[in-house]
Write a protein that binds this DNA or RNA. Structure first.
Length: 820
RNA sequence: GCGGAUGUGGCGGAAUUGGUAGACGCGCGGCGUUCAGGUCGCCGUGGGAGCAAUCCCGUGGAGGUUCGAGUCCUCUCAUCCGCACCA
């Protein structure tokens, strides 16, 4: 007989060809579906750049395992693929080389396509999409217009984050520690007119509806923190000198009586008006100008000493009529609350630092129940120095009473504030979806009529950003006639943030070739929500928040029934090398292609799943990969030999002792793998269980096991391994049974083989393991005790002692408690 | 500062409901196969004592609850991640 050598380079393309020829993984929208029988498994779409890296291999290995498991447990699975193709790296490459971003991007897409096919991922290729194609971005533009027409997209002049290196504005979410998320350059603040999506309208829902989805707790927490919901009150302070009311937001109205000054943000629009005629104009202007010149990083440093300038005006504290001096200080932010605060130095560390620096009064109004006099005190306690009505009252109770009282007096009311800001979506860059708006001197901002979509991205020769979009140079494209009045008008030249493209792609997959609309709501509702979404934690805020916002907005616009896009989320950990993130500059990159060349893709895929719990970071080990290859080779070789040399007979009814052991192990493995797949994402232990099964049928271990039971155990191992290493599993299963494993239902463990007639009884004395003994599974408690006491080593520890207590856990152990 | 997570052999990790700590894999040691070799197969492998049976110690640290704790409770240390002048 031919030598039995595992040859992945032959096996893998052979089965990939079958799947491609037969369109095995495609699902049609024409077949009627029952929601219970369908499953939508989705990995975050890749940004195509260069070659796929090991992280891609891991996500798609995880996703494919889930997709295969869902299919074989009787569901129709939607498992599509696409590309997040717009974005800065391709554009920066174009600036350096002059190569059109479309060319370099499509080159990368071809490379991704080729590798995903070589990886044997079970993708429905008939639904493939890319966000940079007019067929796709036409509908991105359409959604933009829907949002615009419903007031959810708007343009306004605002202080925005600007990256001088990338020469574009950024969303708040794209600024990390005062630096550009993409290039790491220090971000500036500029006053510019920009496009925003009104995501803050959904702040409340975005927090509350987190409770309805099965996401990892840390991701939910990150979203909650980002949205930053605070409950408190808005309280009005009046500047009598000018007759102007200044509302402030505070989470601590219980400390109102302790307010001793009032602070405004340097950007507050009323500063000029307030200082006029006070003689303090120059000093204040110098301070405001200095604050404006600071970078976000400098300004945002909480450890920086507090600075500020007196404005020469006062406001009245509504609870006691005291006049409080007004200051301008850069620790107050214009973007949060009302851009002005009441300062309570006794109970706020920042106000305390400011009061110390400027010699302002500090008035304690909440006592420390522990009797400490230390300030600032931010804890709870009874009110003091406030007002006879409230003094002595516990502060949390007083808080409500004070707000009620302000409300009755018309001086304040309950209020909720969010840290979340509206999503700034316009970018002054070329390689993105054009914003479908026309600016007309007569009619203002006019949407491009739907029948004129898409607004196709024109070709330009110079991609270099010059503070405005490179599109502005495409004069022929920019100059249009106004759709309303027919007069001369100009197109919007900004493009959209690429996160807009990826905020709805999961809907397009459900109906990818529809040229009448973005998607048919009836079809989308059939598949949505995504049953299992898989991706990296780095998207915990940006993408996942935006996609949730889009889904809610589209639902409100009547396009969709679901309000949450991703029912379950799984965030996979990073694969590192020598403890560090892989990067070209560190030279520690493991390329999937090199692993696939050496060992085949099954080894590479199974290893990324076996390396550790898939949600945790794991370090790549070259010898670990070899171990996985050894295991797959052993599984295939044992199967091939068994197929050749053992008679093709079923599992006999009267199993030999060895045969029974092997069959039991197979059923144990079925039970274990099924549980690990279904209940949790424990692929590492699932694969370990298959390894145990294979170890049990190695020739030197299986003894006199019947041919039928050996074949059964091997076929079961192949069947269970299929979601992780589909090619070798398919081939081994086919050799043994002549059938296609992907068409077989997931195996079911039979109870009779899960339960043995005997078990190993563990015997403890005083909780310490002293011996073990084989015991009948149906033995009574008394019988187990009797068995336990008969053991010599147990007797040695019990003799001469007084037995205090005897614990019997049937099927497990006996514990004899003694006292000397 | 606030919030979240994680600490188990030489290494990655397992232990699903409080019940045999260390499954599975890597590495290492020994033996075998091979002319030789990265190969392949078998056996062994937490630490300590002992010829051995066996005993003692052992899940970051200190206490506690329990017949019994990696698992539950209190305190504590370390590491990682997110947010952070958000009133």
């Amino acid at each position: 007989m031919a030598e039995h050598r595992y040859d992945p380079q032959e096996i893998e393309p052979r089965w990939q060809q079958v799947w491609a020829d037969e369109h095995t993984w495609e699902v049609s929208n024409d077949e009627p579906v029952d929601a219970d029988d369908t499953s939508y498994v989705l990995e975050m779409l890749p940004y195509p750049s260069g070659e796929p890296h090991i992280g891609h291999l891991k996500v798609y290995s995880v996703g494919d395992a889930v997709a295969h498991f869902h299919r074989r447990t009787g569901r129709r699975v939607l498992h599509p693929m696409g590309y997040d193709a717009f974005g800065l790296p391709a554009e920066n490459h174009a600036i350096r080389t002059g190569q059109h971003p479309r060319e370099s991007t499509e080159e990368a897409i071809r490379s991704f396509q080729r590798q995903f096919r070589e990886w044997g991922i079970s993708i429905d290729w008939s639904r493939e999409l890319s966000t940079h194609t007019p067929e796709y971005y036409r509908w991105t533009q359409w959604i933009f217009l829907q949002l615009f027409q419903h007031g959810l997209a708007y343009r306004k002049d605002a202080a925005v984050k600007w990256c001088p290196n990338d020469a574009t504005v950024l969303a708040n979410e794209q600024v990390i520690d005062g630096r550009c998320e993409r290039c790491g350059h220090i971000v500036e603040v500029r006053q510019l007119e920009q496009w925003f999506f009104r995501i803050t309208d959904y702040a409340d829902q975005l927090v509350e509806e987190l409770d309805t989805i099965a996401w990892p707790e840390h991701v939910k927490t990150m979203q909650r923190n980002w949205i930053g919901r605070s409950e408190g009150a808005e309280v009005t302070f009046r500047c009598e000198e000018l007759g102007i009311d200044y509302p402030v937001f505070t989470t601590r109205p219980d400390t109102l009586f302790g307010a001793t000054f009032f602070v405004m943000a340097p950007e507050h629009p009323d500063i000029e008006r307030l200082i006029e005629g006070t003689g303090r104009e120059q000093e204040v202007r110098d301070y405001v100008n200095h604050a404006a010149s600071e970078s976000l990083e400098e300004r945002g440093d909480a450890d920086k000493p507090k600075t500020g300038v007196f404005l020469g005006r006062h406001v009245i504290n509504p609870v006691n009529g005291e006049a409080l001096p007004m200051y301008v200080a850069d620790y107050v932010l214009m973007e949060y609350g009302t851009g002005a605060i009441m300062a309570v130095p006794a109970h706020d560390p920042r106000d305390y630092a400011f009061a110390q620096a400027y010699g302002l009064p500090i008035k304690r109004v909440i006592a420390d129940p522990d009797g400490s006099d230390e300030l600032p005190y931010t804890g709870d306690g009874p009110l003091v120095n406030s007002n006879p009505d409230f003094d002595g009252m516990y502060n949390r109770e007083a808080l409500d009473k004070i707000v009620d009282w302000l409300d009755r007096e018309g001086k304040g009311h309950r209020s909720v504030n969010y840290r979340l800001r509206d999503w700034l979506v316009s970018r002054q860059r070329y390689w993105g979806t054009p914003i479908p708006i026309i600016h007309c001197p007569v009619d203002g901002m006019v949407p491009v009529p739907e029948d004129q979509l898409p607004v196709v991205l024109p070709d330009v020769t110079d991609y270099k950003p010059k503070g405005k979009s490179p599109l502005a140079a495409a004069e022929e494209w920019v100059n249009v006639t106004c759709p309303v009045c027919g007069g001369p008008a100009r197109r919007e030249t900004d493009t959209m943030d690429t996160f807009v493209d990826s905020s709805w792609y999961f809907l397009r997959y459900t109906d990818p070739h529809n040229d009448q609309r973005a998607f048919d709501p009836e079809v989308a509702n059939r598949w949505m929500p995504v049953d299992q979404y898989i991706g990296g934690v780095e998207h915990a805020i940006l993408h996942l928040l935006y996609a949730r916002f889009f889904t809610k907005a589209l639902a409100d616009l009547g396009q969709l029934d679901v309000r949450e896009p991703f029912e379950r989320l799984f965030t996979q950990g990073m694969i590192t090398k020598d403890g560090a993130k892989m990067s070209k500059s560190k030279g520690n990159v493991v390329s999937p292609a090199s692993i696939v060349d050496r060992f085949g893709v099954d080894t590479a895929r199974a290893y990324t799943l076996f390396i550790g719990p898939p949600d945790q970071d794991a370090d790549w080990s070259d010898t670990g990969v070899e171990g996985m290859h050894r295991f797959l080779a052993r599984l295939w070789r044992l199967s091939a030999i068994a197929a050749d040399e053992l008679p093709d007979v079923p599992v006999p009814d009267d199993l030999s002792e060895d045969g029974l052991r092997v069959v039991r192990k197979a059923h144990w493995a079925i039970d274990k793998v099924t549980n690990d797949m279904d209940q949790r994402f424990a692929f590492n232990t699932a694969i370990a269980a298959v390894m145990e099964l294979i170890n049990e049928v190695r020739p030197e271990r299986r003894g006199d096991a019947d041919a039928g039971s050996v074949r059964f155990a091997l076929a079961t191992a192949a069947s269970l391994l299929f979601p992780f290493a589909p090619h070798v599993a398919t081939d081994a299963y086919h050799l043994l049974t002549g059938r296609r494993v992907w068409e077989e239902p997931w195996p079911a463990a039979e109870q009779q083989f899960l339960e043995a007639d005997t078990f190993e009884l563990v015997v403890q004395v005083n909780g310490k393991l002293r011996d073990r003994v084989e015991a009948p599974a149906d033995a009574s408690k008394d019988r187990l005790l009797e068995l336990a006491r008969s053991l010599p080593n147990v007797q040695a520890h019990v003799d001469g002692q007084q037995v205090v207590k005897e614990i019997v856990v049937p099927g497990k152990l006996v514990n004899i408690v003694v006292r000397s």
